[in-house]
């Protein structure tokens, strides 16, 4: 079954991506003419996001063989083969979403992985073009390792990659402010625009929350779920926003930051390693803030927020 293949759903979805972006834009323009609000677009921001998306596809074409080769290597090792039935694909989709949750969580908690993922959060807008602001350097995070259990359990690499593509396609439509809330049953199980707006928020309350891809249940199970509050609109972007629309700088700025930090004079090897693998915001001299420090400083300024959502177990 080594020759098994499934369609690359992310590329087949490109016409739908373009169509939905135009639809969202038309909706926003119409809404704003009625003095309402349903999101924002800005030309250079959107252009950067779209170029990042195209670059991500090119990076996939150029580097995809590394992940595929690794997964096929594991496939030859495993004695298990679950086959290709619809139920196997459905089970793989759910388990792959659990895989996505952890990769995404690592992406926010390990600077080496954050260096790849940061560009997705570098827009200060939250619209459907933001969904396409994807990494060019994901291969170098080596997070394909997290797919290993699925292959070793007997899911064929082609099925695992197909489910990963479906996962990404699902996540496209949740990058919008045009949809406020969906029915309660849907919000309780699925990742939605509301849940994912929280994930993109740079507000201290919303940092390191809602890592889900398709099913929000993982965040609820692992204690990272924070609901969107009507009283606190997400402020999109990075804690310290970047000052460039240049896609090359967007793609590589955190890698350059790691290199500069690691090559500083006078550091111990432990400190150099921590600059690579500690949570973003780590510094050997305490000159920067991690998300925990940002939350604590916020609570020092706003003690009334203590023990409210997003600030539980903050140590104050």
């Amino acid at each position: 079954m080594n020759g098994l293949s499934y369609p690359d759903v992310t590329t087949y979805a490109v016409p739908f991506f373009i169509g939905l972006i135009l639809l969202e834009l038309a909706w926003i323009v119409r809404k704003q003419r009625k003095n309402g609000y349903g999101g924002r677009y800005e030309m250079r921001d959107a252009l950067t996001s779209l170029i990042m998306g195209a670059g991500s596809v090119i990076a996939g074409i150029l580097l995809g063989f590394i992940t595929y080769g690794f997964l096929m290597f594991l496939w030859r090792l495993t004695p298990l083969d679950l086959g290709t039935s619809v139920w196997v694909i459905a089970l793989c989709f759910v388990l792959d979403d659990l895989r996505y949750y952890w990769v995404h969580r690592f992406g926010h908690r390990i600077r080496w992985v954050w260096a790849s993922h940061v560009n997705h959060h570098s827009s200060q807008h939250y619209n459907l073009t933001t969904a396409l602001r994807q990494t060019w350097t994901g291969t170098f995070t080596f997070m394909m390792i997290v797919r290993a259990p699925l292959i070793l359990l007997g899911f064929h690499p082609a099925i695992v990659l197909f489910c990963g593509g479906m996962n990404l396609v699902y996540q496209f439509w949740i990058h919008t402010e045009a949809i406020t809330r969906l029915p309660r049953w849907f919000e309780s199980v699925m990742n939605t625009p509301s849940h994912h707006r929280v994930h993109h928020g740079r507000n201290p309350r919303y940092l390191d929350a809602n890592y889900a891809g398709v099913f929000i249940i993982w965040d609820k199970m692992f204690g990272t779920f924070v609901p969107e509050l009507d009283s606190e609109k997400p402020d999109y972007g990075l804690v310290h926003n970047i000052g460039t629309f240049n896609p090359l700088r967007v793609a590589f700025h955190e890698w350059v930051g790691i290199f500069k930090d690691v090559t500083q004079r006078g550091l111990t090897w432990r400190e150099r390693l921590l600059y690579c693998f500690a949570p973003p915001g780590y510094s050997h001299d305490g000159s920067r803030d991690t998300s925990e420090a940002i939350k604590k400083k916020h609570l020092a300024r706003h003690p009334e927020d203590a023990d409210t959502v997003g600030f539980k177990d903050c140590g104050l």
Binding site: I21, L22, L25, Y41, E42, A46, L47
Partner: peptide
């Protein structure tokens, strides 16, 4: 070509709409 036309088209539309 679809990606190139899509990107250029969306950028021009945003400029036309005064969103630049």
């Amino acid at each position: 070509p679809m990606v190139v036309v899509g990107i250029v088209g969306i950028a021009l539309l945003l400029r036309y709409l005064g969103l630049a």
